[in-house]
Write a protein that binds this DNA or RNA. Structure first.
Lengths: 209, 209, 209, 209
DNA sequence: CATGAATGAGTTTTCATTCAT
DNA sequence: TATGAATGAAAACTCATTCAT
């Protein structure tokens, strides 16, 4: 029994191990630029073993997306359901992503960039998940137009898109790799605050708008 | 003379032809996901000919970046040099990119996404060009802090990054391909205005900030 | 253990198999004139497998050289260290090469001709090995000047070079392929003797020199 | 008329120019390792022009061989016909080749090595020319057995082969490229003398043989 | 489960040769 | 003649995937 339990635990462990390795490898070289063997080596396993846990290379990427994108979506959905000000909701959403990046920068980068930007993205079930997130953000902005917190002339969908763009540029690609990896420990929090602040009030002094 | 002129023009023409084809192909399938043969077929030429005009596949991508990124940089530099309000500058910059996308969406997408987001980006001369643009935007925000148009607590570099993120998400990847390609001919202009508007005043109603 | 041993032996076996096939193929068509696929077919394996055992095509040639040139060098070094007459040493050296050719004519040809005569030879570590052999032969001739067996006016280095030339022409290229492959089983031995004989006493009758 | 003459002269000139360039290029990188374009560039011409003067790449190599091998063959034939001692004949033959190398090292190297050692050598008319030279040398040694200058136990064909090997190793490949290209202006002559000397009397002191 | 040998389709790149100008 | 654009066969090399052990 102990053995069986250990084995089944081992199965999940191995799978996690491979996903973690894939995250590192994909973040480093991109999906197409990475080899299955790279992932196995990063995990300290043989590359043949990868096919015991995943159908193929693409399934690894999909697993990474599907097992993590839902978390983001849940945060958006939940924070909206729980109510509160727009500022609060933006703070929670941006805070979650920034914190996620702090914990697992590679994972955030891969999920946000590698999947979303993949040329095959549109052909996949992932598209629906991405649209769901967008819709979630859009719903928030739309709702707060009714509360008077958001200006009438704001297009909720555009606002959602622009918010996503800010978070994406911040947490993926060059900026995250170089800019955020600085010595300044407050930089990440200031960046998060900047996103919220820009979304809410832009950069202009109140009277000059 | 006419002949010589025609010949040398022909050389440039063919090169342009290949770059245009590469733009289409890279936009469709990504750099790594595209074959040199695809570019040639798109151009209606043989794949061997590609190597008369470019050292290798990567040189095509670099040419696309280097011959176009400078244009964006020039717009940022010039508009800042010519003075005016921050709003004006943001309108010009966002307007230029939106117009560029309208004219050549594939080119904008490839240059902004395929090169800048490439994992090999950091190893290349391209990095310097990217940093230059970021510095140009940063200079604008920094300057307008001295004019009182930008709040004191705004980090110019972060503002530059977030602006870039908004433009990038809008003009590349999924959003541009699906959202902007709608029937609504005003959408593109409204998107541009939204970027300027969010950067300047966010989405909140003035008093509620 | 048996399994592990078998496996590791299998790895070496396959590698040998490929080297043997490469020897045949290179001897037939030259290094540049042979395709990796030819080697694989000669070995009865797929060409992809070649790259499991060797970095690339050139590495195969280098392996052939490095794993065999040392044997020749050892014979020269050892026979000199063990002392004896110059005649004896030349007989051993020439005898070794002739015997090697008898056993594996392709291998001798490839190592002596394909590597040594390659235009890229000078750029490689192989050069040092070649010079070592030349130095070994030179040392022998130099030594036997001190014993009085070699004339004072003989340049040891030149003698070494000329000896090498005789052996090379005999065992490589056209001569070996056509002349030595005759019905006469004594031809090979007579050739070896001729090299020794010419080096020692030339072809002239003693008094007529 | 002047024009026509100039043109026809120009044709031969161009052909020579290309052959000279091909010699340099083939000596540097080998036949298979050289490109038609390399030859054209070395000659300062366009590569398309090469095909006005030669059927194809191989025809260039054959022209080099056929237009020069005959010279060597003629020297051997003539010196034998004119009579004299074996020493004299060897001196003339070796002297001719050494002098040829001094004048045009690349040409000697290409003709002796690139053609003779080519894997396709056997399939070609060149084989006959090579065998003719060998026969010529063999005839000399055979003849001087009848004059008593050559020992009875000497195999004329083997002697011819070994002589060829000495000359070949000396004037081609590594030795010529590195050893003979030294500062010592007497080295070349001493090498020639060494070949003659070794062929005639070997290296041993007369009594010790 | 685990390993890595084996396969071969797929890609990049090279380059001899042709041919329109 | 002279040029070099154009072609495409050919070759090196990669790597996802399979499968025997």
């Amino acid at each position: 029994m102990a053995k069986a339990k250990k084995d089944s635990a081992s199965y999940e462990d191995r799978r996690r191990q491979l996903l973690r390795a894939a995250t590192v490898v994909f973040a480093r070289g991109g999906y197409l630029g990475s080899r299955v063997g790279d992932i196995a080596r990063e995990a300290g396993l043989s590359y043949g073993l990868v096919y015991h846990y995943f159908e193929n290379k693409e399934a690894i990427l999909n697993a990474l997306f599907q097992e993590n994108w839902g978390l983001v979506l849940k945060v958006v959905t939940d924070v909206h359901a729980q109510g509160g000000t727009l500022r609060h909701k933006l703070e929670v959403i941006a805070g979650f992503l920034v914190e996620a990046w702090r914990q697992q920068p590679d994972l955030v980068e891969v999920v946000m960039l590698e999947v979303v930007r993949s040329p095959k993205f549109l052909e996949k079930a992932n598209l629906a998940a991405f649209l769901e997130l967008l819709a979630g953000l859009e719903a928030i902005f739309a709702h707060h137009k009714t509360t008077g917190e958001v200006r009438d002339d704001v297009d909720p969908k555009l606002a959602a898109i622009l918010l996503l763009g800010q978070l994406e540029v911040l947490l993926t690609g060059f900026v995250a790799r170089q800019f955020l990896n600085s010595d300044d420990p407050t930089l990440l929090d200031r960046s998060r605050d900047a996103v919220v602040s820009v979304m809410l009030g832009g950069v202009a002094v109140p009277s000059s708008t």
